[in-house]
């Protein structure tokens, strides 16, 4: 299970790198909607990473909600 989570994090990290490059590309070529959509995709990939980290127990719950 832990290996699957790690694989997921690696996959999502790779995706977010691709999205970040896409944002730069959209900015350079003035494709604002393209770049903006990739900002959203990047944030969603980050949310997936945070979720997987939480499920692996690397980042814990907030103190009040331990």
């Amino acid at each position: 299970m832990r290996n699957m989570y790690t694989a997921g994090i690696v996959l999502l990290s790779g995706l977010s790198l691709a999205f970040a490059l896409g944002i730069l590309y959209g900015e350079a070529t003035d494709r604002w909607f393209f770049g903006g959509a990739l900002v959203g995709a990047l944030l969603m990939a980050y949310s997936g990473i945070v979720l997987l980290l939480r499920k692996m127990g690397i980042i814990g719950p907030r103190k009040a909600e331990r």
Partner: peptide
């Protein structure tokens, strides 16, 4: 006494991300 005003981090990222993604894909 302690209202839960903000959602957890992953949902902040996912919500903002979803809104941007939709705004870019379906203007």
């Amino acid at each position: 006494r302690h209202p839960k005003i903000w959602p957890p981090a992953t949902w902040v990222l996912a919500s903002v991300g979803l809104v941007f993604l939709l705004a870019g894909v379906i203007p």
